[in-house]
Design a protein around this nucleic acid. Structure first.
Lengths: 84, 84
DNA sequence: AACTATACCGGTATTTCTATTGGGTTAGAC
DNA sequence: GTCTAACCCAATAGAAATACCGGTATAGTT
């Protein structure tokens, strides 16, 4: 096995993260927030809609900083299921 | 250019994150922590040594959960420089 | 001393995904 | 009509994540 495709669960997890970020953006425009976080507007749009399901850590960290939300809150319920 | 290579600063940022994670792992083995976080030992080792400079958000979230540390603390000082 | 086991490292190869640019489209506001 | 914000799609360079290899070092066993 080399690099397994993303599972449906991982896709859903990405969508959920995107919803949280969009909610946190509030009334601000995508372009403004993306510029403040140092990324392209297209990328932010894809993250918010879940089309980028596993974004980079520092990408989300920059967004959380701009949006003024906690990374730990964004990660709630996102821990993969690892059997005991 | 479509996707610029990682800058030296981003490499350093990845190394710093890796050091924090290795420190948090303490005496536990790479294999044990990687299994608990749902990833291969190879991947964790590369993250800790900085060879994976921009790991995925959920990957770091799973690690932080296993290691019992805060994501916000891991992201301290990692926000890219975006001029006002 | 020789053997075994554990743990880490560096390199290579592979597949899948991110993040970007550019162009085109839609809808509402001025 | 013009401007702005958002959406959608295709193409692309580069990187993540996995697995395998040999090598090194240390500690424990026989």
């Amino acid at each position: 096995m080399v690099r397994p495709p993303l599972t449906p669960e991982e896709r859903l997890r990405g969508e959920h993260l995107g919803l949280l970020l969009r909610e946190a953006r509030g009334g601000r425009s995508i372009a403004e927030v993306a510029a403040a976080a140092g990324m392209s507007a297209e990328t932010l749009r894809k993250i918010e809609t879940g089309r980028i399901a596993t974004p980079a850590f520092f990408t989300i960290a920059a967004l959380a900083d701009v949006l003024g939300i906690s990374l730990d809150r964004l990660a709630v319920g996102t821990t993969p299921a690892v059997p005991t």
